[in-house]
């Protein structure tokens, strides 16, 4: 073995009389691999409408309501998550939710649809980092493999027994929407489950 070859020192010392260099932890092991942050004041509207009204509602809110279950669509910073055959959650930029609610309420569709502002009932937590799927898998029984749960996929499921809506934004970027009363618990659980990966809690969006 060449003297300059770095040793991976697991029992190697027994086979060589050379002094082994002290191994430094590579940076990727010490740097936090999960980043958590809240997305504050995100506008959230619960919209219920049948498929025949879907297109008209989509026009009014300027974001397509997804026809396929367990998917979301996004347009210009607005996200529409499918919650059921006739139920959707619209995530809109902070402050725009009352205006959107008014648009839907004053439209002729109101007899056929329902719109409820749930901005304060739910809390959005953003999780990112290379280990984010491993972290979520510890408490979530659904298949989070990138082949199955990719960008724009969503799921209503249990995360550590709390009901959440999981949204995959990008490969290593998720949004977890939970009840405001469960937010502290979910965050505590994420911090605890992510100890081995290193957690960075950032304030910014």
């Amino acid at each position: 073995m060449d003297e300059n070859t770095p040793h991976i020192a697991f029992g190697c010392a027994a086979f060589t009389d050379k002094k082994l260099p002290i191994l430094k932890k590579p940076e990727f092991l010490t740097a936090p691999q999960i980043e958590l942050s809240e997305i504050p004041h995100l506008g959230k509207l619960n919209i219920r409408c049948d498929s025949i009204n879907r297109d008209e509602v989509s026009k009014l809110i300027q974001c397509n309501l997804p026809a396929e279950p367990n998917y979301m669509s996004n347009k210009a910073g607005r996200f529409a998550v499918s919650l059921g055959p006739d139920e959707y959650l619209l995530l809109a930029e902070p402050g725009s939710e009352s205006q959107l609610e008014q648009i839907l309420r004053s439209s002729h569709l109101l007899e056929h649809i329902s719109v409820v502002n749930v901005s304060d009932a739910f809390c959005a937590i953003r999780l990112s980092g290379i280990k984010v799927r491993e972290l979520l898998s510890k408490g979530c029984p659904i298949d989070l493999h990138p082949n199955n749960f990719y960008s724009n996929r969503t799921a209503q499921c249990e995360l550590a027994l709390a009901n959440v809506i999981l949204i995959c934004l990008e490969d290593n970027e998720f949004v977890c929407i939970c009840r405001t009363s469960f937010a502290e618990y979910v965050l505590d659980w994420c911090i605890d489950a992510g100890q081995e990966y290193g957690i960075l809690i950032s304030k910014k969006i």
């Binding site: 279950p69 367990n70 059921g84 055959p85 029984p141 659904i142 799921a155 209503q156 499921c157 249990e158």
Partner: peptide, 11 residues
């Protein structure tokens, strides 16, 4: 029928 296969504990 809507979400696909899930664990019994969710039902």
């Amino acid at each position: 029928p809507f979400c696909g296969y899930r664990n019994e504990s969710e039902f």
